[in-house]
Simulated assay, not measured.
Amino acid sequence: MAIERLQRMVADFVSERGWAGFHTPKNLVMALTGEVGELAELFQWLTDDQSRALMGNSTRRARVEEEVADVFIYLLRLADVLEIDLVAAVEAKVLKNAERYPIEQVYGRAVKYSELDSER
């Protein structure tokens, strides 16, 4: 599976450089947070239309792709260190969200599941 192959690639990269000792869950979460911040910075202050058009600029597209990759790499590494099966976790979360967000109650609406009962 692609996820496992990528996790192995990242783990090998880390191991070859002797960085495994630095990859504690806390440090990985902090690094992940920083990378999400760098990704957010690329979109900060843009209008909705500008944010949609951003990928049409090849220089900006490359920067977005790099930051998305950094976020994903740290997420892969965190899941690996914590022994989380990402595929199983995502599948379980989507099923849980399907229960929380019934189509007939949320279709076309941006509403939190905890507010659904109060709106009936």
Rank of each mutant, 00 (worst) to 15 (best):
I3G: 00
E4N: 13
E4C: 00
R5T: 13
R5P: 00
M9N: 12
A11F: 13
F13Q: 08
S15T: 08
S15A: 12
E16L: 11
E16T: 07
G18I: 07
W19I: 04
F22A: 14
H23I: 01
T24Q: 04
T24A: 09
T24M: 05
L28H: 04
M30L: 12
L32Q: 11
G34V: 14
E35V: 05
E38Y: 07
E38N: 01
A40H: 12
E41M: 11
F43R: 04
F43V: 11
W45T: 15
T47F: 10
T47A: 09
D48H: 14
Q50S: 10
Q50W: 04
R52N: 11
R52A: 14
R52W: 02
L54S: 08
N57W: 00
S58V: 14
S58A: 15
T59E: 12
T59N: 15
R60G: 14
R61L: 13
R63V: 03
V64R: 00
V64I: 05
V64E: 01
E65Q: 13
E66V: 10
E66G: 06
V68A: 15
V68F: 11
A69F: 06
A69E: 02
A69K: 01
D70F: 03
V71Q: 02
V71P: 01
F72E: 00
I73L: 05
Y74L: 13
L75Y: 01
R77V: 01
D80E: 15
D80R: 13
V81K: 07
I84Y: 10
I84C: 08
D85R: 07
D85P: 10
V90W: 15
V90S: 02
A92L: 13
A92M: 10
A92Y: 07
L95Q: 13
L95R: 13
K96M: 10
R100N: 11
Y101Q: 06
Y101M: 09
P102F: 13
E104H: 11
V106L: 06
Y107F: 10
Y107P: 00
G108C: 11
G108W: 02
R109G: 04
V111K: 06
L116G: 06
E119H: 03
E119G: 00
R120W: 01
